[in-house]
């Protein structure tokens, strides 16, 4: 079967079995290895991507279910044609939100969806938004700090505009 998706703004067409995991399509068929596999059973969140704006674990989504969908991965976050970090990525870098980096792509996608939803960036709300993304390095402290920083900058930017 041929499936058509839009990945990070670019149309993509893959001829693969329908039950292939979206994760494998991204990593192996499209060469987008930024999305990571940590457990293959939807527990760790390392493979989190956005499908039509919603967070999903791409290890549990067969490609047949995303035919025609818009998929966003960590490779699609950077701005200015991919040459500059997005504000969320910059906040992670400054706050120390990435250590070993393997949970980071999924964590960023969960955080990106949280920012896009525009919820108040309270500690509890941020922690709830990343509860499906395991991190073993940071104790989550600086990840929460980074997301709050990005949300506050976003709000300040929106206020100024």
């Amino acid at each position: 079967m041929t499936y058509r998706l839009v990945v990070n703004g670019e149309p993509a067409e893959v001829g693969v079995p329908g039950m292939r995991r979206l994760l494998d399509v991204l990593r192996e068929d499209l060469g987008l290895t930024g999305t990571k596999e940590g457990c293959g059973e939807g527990e760790c969140g390392a493979c989190t991507v956005l499908v039509d704006g919603e967070v999903v674990v791409s290890c549990l989504v067969p490609v047949c279910q995303v035919d025609g969908s818009v998929v966003r991965t960590v490779e699609g976050l950077a701005v200015a044609g991919g040459s500059a970090l997005a504000p969320l990525q910059a906040a992670f870098l400054e706050a120390g939100g990435a250590q070993c980096g393997i949970c980071t792509p999924g964590m960023l996608m969960a955080a990106d969806a949280f920012l896009a939803a525009g919820a108040e960036p309270t500690d509890d709300a941020i922690r709830g938004a990343i509860a499906g993304n395991l991190c073993r390095c940071t104790g989550y402290t600086k990840i929460v700090d980074a997301i709050r920083l990005a949300a506050e900058r976003r709000q300040a930017g929106a206020g100024a505009a």
Partner: peptide, 9 residues
């Protein structure tokens, strides 16, 4: 059940 990723699917 799970977290947001699981609840969305």
């Amino acid at each position: 059940i799970g977290a947001a990723q699981i609840q969305n699917r």
